[in-house]
């Protein structure tokens, strides 16, 4: 009985989280566009799947992703080996980004923009290699970002100094980068941080900041995602200049 109650309250929470989307889509479809909702049955089933999926995800988050991220952070902190910690940070950033579906989609679009702008030849092969190069560029930049972010937590530097440097980098690159690449570069920052990366990386940062002496998890633990959405902008503009 207790567990049934817990499940239904978790489902209710997910439903509440998703309700605003339903209201917005329903309002615009029925009132503004004045059209009926197409394939009502299919949409209802899809929505039920979304609710169940979000519920399972949140459960798994608390059972799996958060504990493992923190557990590894503690283990690295007690071992005190910064080199391996940085390797781990890079691998985590690179590995979670390279397979990210949103990034694959953006890279493909970017390749067609580059072909349109005459930067590369309009053949399937050059499009593919451009898109792949871009994906590796972004994945490396996210790996470096998480690495720098972790190093910052270890050293306890205030995050705003590094962000100022990053922003300056973006602005400088904007001046020199070809106009076609700028929009894609700016967008690629937001696209890279996926739903699995965020909880893992957040748990890692908070875990590190709480197990290293003199660090405050609130002040120092967050900020890894911020770097991961900043460096791809710089690297993608760099890629646009080189290729």
């Amino acid at each position: 009985m207790e567990s049934l109650k817990a499940i239904s309250s978790a489902l209710f929470d997910s439903l509440r989280d998703l309700l605003p989307i339903l209201v917005v889509i329903g309002f615009f479809q029925l009132v503004v566009l004045q059209q009926p909702i197409p394939n009502f049955g299919e949409i209802a089933i899809g929505f039920a799947l979304v609710v169940i999926g979000l519920t399972l995800f949140v459960q798994g988050l608390n059972m799996g992703l958060f504990p493992i991220g923190e557990c590894m952070a503690y283990a690295f902190a007690t071992k005190g080996n910064v080199f391996w910690l940085l390797c781990f940070a890079f691998a985590l950033g690179f590995g979670t980004t390279i397979a990210e579906p949103a990034l694959i989609a953006v890279a493909r679009e970017a390749a067609s923009v580059a072909a349109e702008g005459g930067m590369i030849a309009h053949t399937a092969e050059s499009l593919k290699s451009y898109a792949q190069g871009l994906r590796y560029t972004v994945a490396i930049s996210v790996g470096i970002a998480i690495m720098i972010g972790v190093f910052r937590i270890v050293m306890g530097w205030p995050i705003q100094y590094l962000i100022v440097v990053g922003y300056t980098g973006v602005v400088i690159m904007t001046v020199f980068a070809p106009a076609e690449i700028i929009g894609i570069a700016y967008d690629s920052g937001g696209v890279t941080t996926s739903t699995i990366t965020v909880p893992l990386v957040t748990a890692l940062g908070v875990g590190l900041a709480s197990s290293i002496k003199g660090r405050n998890p609130m002040v120092d633990g967050f900020g890894l995602i911020a770097f991961a959405s900043l460096t791809p902008m710089i690297f993608v503009m760099g890629y646009g200049m080189l290729v």
Binding site: I43, F47, V50, G53, F57, Q59, G64
Partner: peptide, 25 residues
């Protein structure tokens, strides 16, 4: 065991979530 179950739930949950989004929203 618990962590592996958690991973499984995350994969399953995200799968349902994306499937549903693609079908409905």
């Amino acid at each position: 065991k618990k962590i592996l179950t958690g991973f499984l739930l995350v994969i399953l949950g995200l799968g349902f979530f994306l499937e549903g989004l693609q079908a409905a929203l």
